[in-house]
Amino acid sequence: MDITSPKAEAYIGKYTSEEDSLLKEIAEYTEANHPKAHMLSGRLQGKFLEMVSFMIRPERILEIGTFTGYSALCLAKGLQPNGVLHTIELRESDAATAKGFFQRSFFKDNIILHIGDALKVIGELDEMFDLVFIDADKTNYMNYFNLVLPKVRQNGFIFADNVLFHGQVLTEEIKGKNAKAIQAFNDFVLSCNDVEKVMLPLRDGLLLMRKL
C-alpha cells in the first residue's frame, strides 16, 4: 500500500534538497547490489533526519540498525564537533559495507560501529543519548524502546521507523508477525506516559518521541 501517492512523492522530492555525493553513492550502490534495498532511508527521510539532528545538535546518538550506512551519515551531520554516534548492525556484510562508506566520510572519527545483537550491545553501552533512531527488526521494537528509554536524557528524542509498515497496520485484520509487532509497539507507545509523541506519514511512517 502506498502511504502517499507517487504524484505527491514526486512533488515533495522536487522541493527537497539533493543528497550529498557520498549519500547518493550509498543509495545507488544499495539499489544495485542489495536484495533488500527498499530498507534504505532514502533522500526524503534522510534529509528529514539530517534537519532534525541539526535542530537538536546532539552530543550522543544511538542508531539501532545500520544497514548500509545512509541514515547514520544523515544523523551524524548535526553532531556537536566532539559528538559520537553509536550504530549497531547484526549482519556482518551490511556492517562491512557501511564501514567502508563511514571511512570515506567527514564523520569517520565520530561514528562507532557495533556488530552483533542490538539487545546485548545496548545493555553494554554506558552512555546517555540525546537522540535514538530505532530501525532494526520489528519484533524487538518494544524491547529496544524499553532498553533505551532509561539511557535517553530528559527532553531527548527517540525516533522509530516503519511504524506504518507498508500500510499493513491500516488494514482491518493485521497479518504477519512484523505488522503485528509494529501495531503492538504503536499501541504501547500510545499508552506510555513517559514520552510525548507524534507520528508522521513520512516514507513508511516515522514516530517521534520526546522523553518527559
Rank of each mutant, 00 (worst) to 15 (best):
F101N: 05
Q80S: 13
C74P: 05
L75R: 06
A98M: 11
R60A: 13
A72C: 08
S105C: 07
A72P: 08
F107A: 11
S93R: 09
T66A: 11
D94T: 04
I64R: 08
V84T: 15
Q80W: 04
Q103W: 06
I64L: 11
V84R: 12
G83H: 08
Q103D: 15
F67P: 08
L73G: 04
T68D: 02
A95I: 01
K77R: 15
R60W: 07
H86M: 06
Q103S: 15
R60M: 13
S93I: 07
P81V: 06
G65M: 03
R104F: 12
L79T: 06
N82H: 14
L90C: 05
I61V: 15
K99Y: 12
G69Q: 03
K99M: 11
P81G: 07
L73N: 02
G100I: 01
K108F: 15
V84K: 15
L90P: 01
S71I: 00
L85M: 07
R91H: 13
A76I: 01
A98D: 09
R104A: 02
V84S: 05
I88G: 02
L73C: 04
A72H: 07
F101I: 02
Q103V: 00
Y70R: 00
P81S: 09
F107E: 08
A98K: 09
R60C: 09
A96M: 11
G78E: 02
L62R: 05
L90N: 06
